Simulated scan of single mutants.
Amino acid sequence: MAIKKNYAGVDGPLSDGNLTIMVVPSAEIEAVADVTAALLNGASAVDITYDLTTDGYQHTPGNEEITQNRLTRPYEKKRQGKQTDTLQLQYGYDPETGEGETQADTVLVTGAKVHVIERRGVDHETDFAAGDKIKIYPGEVGRKTDDPPVAAAEFTRSVAILLDGEVTDETVLTAGA
């Protein structure tokens, strides 16, 4: 491949305003193909993007490594094993309101089966459309914890989404019905 002379690189879109995080009850989704623009624009999908703190969306991808050693082979051979991804959310909340009164608490109920859907690079205010690229995280909402209070900061809660299915890193949406 030749050197690209005078190449300045690619400017990606800024993350500010160009990220959307949705939560959909898993009862709405039996297969990846069920995640459509119509579903994500519908009433059962809850937008939690602006409930999350600035570092409150932490996806850590991972896989087990399987080593395959062979007699007299001069090197180890590694294979990819099970997915070991984690997804941690942190959001602002008001301790004076009851459980379920903030948008994130409404959908992030401990034990609930959910799919967290991520869309990057498209203005947050833009409806989902066929052709949008999304990531899908299926799982169960773990136990919510109140984070320690910090001076001059809002109260926050954290929760792990206990992933229990295949994380799809890039799925292209269809329009749906």
Rank of each mutant, 00 (worst) to 15 (best):
A2T: 10
I3L: 11
K4W: 09
G9I: 14
G17A: 06
N18C: 02
N18T: 01
M22H: 03
V23S: 10
V23A: 10
S26E: 05
A27Q: 05
A31P: 07
V32Y: 01
V32D: 02
V32A: 08
A33Q: 15
T36M: 13
A38T: 14
G42M: 07
G42S: 14
I48G: 04
D51A: 09
T53D: 13
G56A: 06
Q58T: 11
P61H: 02
G62L: 05
I66G: 04
Q68K: 14
R70T: 06
L71P: 01
T72Q: 02
R73S: 15
R73G: 09
P74F: 11
P74Q: 07
K78F: 09
R79Q: 14
K82F: 04
D85H: 12
L89F: 12
G92C: 12
E96F: 14
G98Y: 05
G98R: 11
G100D: 13
G100I: 04
T102F: 04
T102A: 10
Q103Y: 08
D105A: 09
T106A: 04
T110K: 15
T110G: 15
V114Y: 02
R119P: 05
G121R: 14
D123I: 10
K135C: 10
P138D: 09
P138R: 10
E140Q: 13
R143A: 12
T145I: 06
D147H: 01
P148R: 11
P149T: 01
P149L: 02
V150G: 01
A153E: 15
E154C: 04
T156K: 08
R157Y: 12
I161L: 02
I161E: 06
I161K: 00
T168R: 07
D169Q: 13
T171Y: 07
